[in-house]
């Protein structure tokens, strides 16, 4: 059944059951003859933290700068990136238990960020000084981390990777899912499927006054255009392992939905420019856009993506912006002070 390595990323609400999902799906795939590996790197930050400490000491960084690399350590997915790279080299299916979606999104933001155009805070010299003072092993470790980031970026873009949200049918489910889908779109990723865990099915003895609203919340997701897989609440299966095991085939066969198109620039007849940012699945009311120096900041429900403006746009002023279908269109007009030939 499995032709080549497939990466399934499971992320969701805290307590929604990503760990149970990963293990249950792995076992279910195993019974179908598909070798799958679960990775959960959330216990390995200690080693990375020690590595960062040595880098800080070598660089002689002051108190303020001391905290910068520590923020990187708090990005829980950094260890996960290393793990995914190792697992991919082993082949087979990979089930990445990426935990809470907020942390995963921060990781995705980091992965999708550009490497230029941002205001400086930590002088590059400090990092270079640190690099020159570190041991060979630590230097190699940093290189491994950086290399892994590049490789995992490529894996995420691969046709065989899937991102699945794991949620429970609590109040506010549709808002939560809409927000997360929009935020995934912002970081140039996408939600390929929604696993709704602990759904009380009709006729199985659950109190209807409690169960019916939960089933309605699941139904409310059906219009989002994303496959919804119900994981039933079973009386004798509290961690959900059996239910996830039974759903393994369906989860594994989920297709990959299209990812956002690259940004594009169109020149208007009046000499201005329109920047098109594809944001499929994003509710317009969740979007904000602003300018930070020569960068455009796009915000979806509190998650931000910052990208350096193309040189032609950096010489313009923003005249307005709005959502046109699934695209954010930002209108730029030439800044006369920077376009003398236009005046």
């Amino acid at each position: 059944m499995l032709k080549r390595s497939r990466l399934l990323i499971l992320s969701g609400q805290s307590g929604a059951g990503t760990t149970s999902a990963a293990r249950g799906i792995r076992d279910g795939l195993g019974s179908r003859g598909v070798a799958a590996t679960v990775i959960d790197s959330r216990g390995s930050e200690v080693e990375i933290e020690a590595l960062v400490d040595r880098a800080i000491a070598s660089a002689g960084l002051g108190t303020l700068a001391h905290e910068l690399p520590r923020i990187l350590v708090r990005l829980e997915g950094l260890a996960g990136i290393l793990a995914v790279r190792e697992a991919a080299a082993r082949g087979g299916a990979i089930l990445w238990d990426a935990g809470e979606t907020g942390a995963f999104l921060r990781l995705m933001t980091l992965l999708s960020s550009t490497r230029s155009g941002m205001a400086g805070i930590l002088p590059p010299l400090a990092a270079m000084r640190a690099a020159q003072s570190l041991s060979q092993a630590d230097l190699a470790a940093w290189q491994m981390i950086l290399g892994a980031i590049d490789e995992v970026q490529a894996l995420l873009a691969d046709e065989d990777s899937r991102i699945l949200l794991v949620v429970v049918p609590d109040e506010g489910l549709d808002e939560l899912v809409a927000t997360r889908i929009g935020q995934l779109s912002l970081v140039r990723a996408g939600c390929d499927g929604i696993l709704v865990n602990r759904v009380p099915r009709a006729g199985e003895g659950w109190p209807e006054s409690w169960a019916q609203p939960q089933r309605r919340r699941v139904e409310s997701l059906l219009g989002l255009g994303v496959p919804v897989i119900e994981i039933p609440q079973l009386v004798d299966d509290s961690p959900g392992a059996g239910a996830f095991r039974a759903a393994a085939g369906e989860v594994f066969d989920v297709g990959r939905l299209p990812r956002p198109l690259p940004d594009s620039i169109e020149e208007r007849d009046d000499g201005g420019y329109d920047l098109h940012v594809h944001l499929p699945g994003v509710r317009p009311e969740l979007v904000r856009v602003g300018r930070l120096g020569d960068a455009l900041v796009t915000d979806v429900a509190g998650l931000r993506r910052q990208m350096a403006l193309a040189p032609v746009l950096a010489r313009c002023v923003i005249e307005g912006a709005g959502m046109d279908g699934d695209r954010l269109v930002v209108r730029f007009g030439r800044n006369r002070a920077l376009w003398p030939e236009a005046s």
Binding site: L68, I71, L72, S113, I121, A127, M128, A131, L146
Partner: peptide, 30 residues
């Protein structure tokens, strides 16, 4: 960490670490 690949492009690697730190700090601060 000891059985890792040989070093290459150290400067760009260090710059990437700096960029990661910027992204983690500057964007939320904005």
């Amino acid at each position: 960490l000891s059985s890792l690949a040989s070093l290459s492009s150290l400067a760009s690697g260090a710059q990437q670490i700096v960029d990661m730190a910027k992204q983690a700090i500057v964007v939320p601060h904005a």
